[in-house]
Amino acid sequence: MKGPLFYAKILLFGEYGIIKDSKGLAIPYNSYKGALKSVANLSGEAKKSNENLVKFYEYLKDLDTNIVSFDLDRFKQDIDGGMYFDSSIPQGYGVGSSGALVASVYDQYANDKITVLENLTRDKLLKLKDIFSAMESFFHGKSSGLDPLNSYLSLPILINSKTNIEPAGIPSQKEGKGAVFLLDSEQVGETEPMVNIFMNKMKNEGFRRMLNEEFVSYTDACIDDFLHGNIKSLFGNVKNLSKVVFAHFKPMIPSAFHKVWEQGILTNDYYLKLCGSGGGGYILGFTQDYDKAKESLKDYKLEVVYRF
């Protein structure tokens, strides 16, 4: 067997804010992908993945069937037959490796599944998000369900609030000088500890106020600017967002990148922000002149995501 491909995702804006009901914008990232496959003799990564699927199967057995039910017998049969998730999506990098796996399993084994081809009303999108949230919680302890949703639909998704999500039309890429890029921290980040740090910070009234008054308002402004192609305004808001994250989310920024982060704000060559929960993996960069950013960051691995 060989299942369909599911792609990585990038949350351009909204990390942490969407936990507190602010806006978010996620886009598929087709450079990385995964699919369910089977082999007769499992070894190495495939064997590890197969063992992980056994644990996932046990978890899905106990999931509330009012939310979603699966053809578990067939799932177990396929796992026993050497099924694994063959993926190029780096794990712990904030680009949705578990989301693509969840989307694959739902696509193959869910009963009465909502398909990509039907008319995706808001209610159906929210139902999918709830299903994916319940499924992906196996990997992260608590999941918004957005990564698998993005991977499953392979569409940009605009999160207006927890109960209001919609497919988004994003401006088509131009062959300009500006770019959104990924900066490889070359270390793995784990979602759960980062989210726990955030939840502890949320107990502090000053942090909550900063989140609402600064972080969320800059995030929302960035999304509006990006969707409407207001590039000049976008970079002003991204700079402000980068400053706020540097000031208040330091534990989520790998310490080796504190100087690099600050350097971007001081020189205006690029601005950095978290990609996913942080703590490692990729860091997202925005620049009006990619050649200049590349020169400034020549010691690091960069990948272009979107051109302005």
Results as ranks from 00 to 15, higher is better:
1 M>P: 09
3 G>A: 00
3 G>P: 03
4 P>G: 03
5 L>V: 04
9 K>Y: 00
11 L>V: 02
12 L>T: 01
14 G>T: 08
15 E>F: 07
16 Y>R: 05
17 G>K: 01
17 G>D: 04
20 K>E: 12
22 S>L: 04
23 K>M: 14
23 K>T: 09
24 G>Y: 06
24 G>S: 14
24 G>M: 13
25 L>P: 03
28 P>E: 05
29 Y>L: 15
32 Y>C: 02
33 K>C: 03
34 G>K: 03
37 K>G: 04
37 K>Q: 08
41 N>V: 14
41 N>M: 14
41 N>F: 13
43 S>K: 15
48 K>F: 13
49 S>D: 05
50 N>H: 09
51 E>N: 15
51 E>V: 07
51 E>I: 08
53 L>M: 08
54 V>S: 12
54 V>Y: 13
57 Y>A: 01
59 Y>Q: 02
61 K>Q: 09
63 L>I: 15
67 I>Y: 06
73 D>F: 13
73 D>L: 12
79 I>H: 01
80 D>T: 10
80 D>G: 10
81 G>Y: 13
85 F>K: 06
86 D>A: 12
87 S>M: 03
92 G>R: 08
92 G>P: 10
92 G>E: 10
94 G>F: 00
97 S>L: 11
98 S>Y: 11
98 S>M: 10
98 S>H: 06
100 A>E: 02
101 L>P: 02
104 S>H: 08
104 S>F: 09
105 V>L: 10
106 Y>E: 03
110 A>L: 13
112 D>T: 07
115 T>S: 15
115 T>H: 11
116 V>G: 03
124 K>N: 02
128 L>P: 00
129 K>Y: 01
139 F>T: 09
140 H>Q: 08
152 Y>D: 00
156 P>K: 01
156 P>A: 06
159 I>Y: 11
160 N>C: 07
162 K>L: 06
163 T>G: 15
164 N>R: 12
165 I>M: 10
166 E>I: 09
171 P>I: 01
174 K>M: 01
174 K>D: 05
178 G>A: 14
179 A>T: 05
186 E>L: 05
188 V>F: 02
192 E>V: 11
193 P>W: 09
194 M>W: 11
200 N>I: 00
203 K>R: 14
205 E>L: 11
210 M>G: 12
210 M>F: 12
213 E>K: 15
215 F>L: 14
217 S>Y: 02
217 S>F: 12
217 S>A: 11
219 T>M: 07
219 T>G: 14
223 I>D: 15
228 H>E: 15
230 N>I: 02
230 N>E: 15
235 F>D: 08
236 G>F: 07
236 G>L: 12
237 N>Y: 11
238 V>T: 03
238 V>D: 04
241 L>T: 11
243 K>C: 10
244 V>G: 05
246 F>D: 05
250 K>Q: 14
251 P>A: 04
252 M>R: 08
253 I>Y: 06
255 S>T: 15
256 A>Q: 15
262 E>K: 14
263 Q>P: 04
265 I>L: 03
267 T>N: 11
267 T>A: 03
269 D>A: 14
270 Y>K: 00
279 G>P: 09
279 G>S: 10
283 I>F: 13
285 G>V: 06
292 K>S: 02
292 K>C: 00
296 S>Q: 02
300 Y>D: 04
300 Y>K: 01
301 K>G: 11
304 V>G: 09
304 V>K: 14
304 V>N: 11
305 V>C: 06
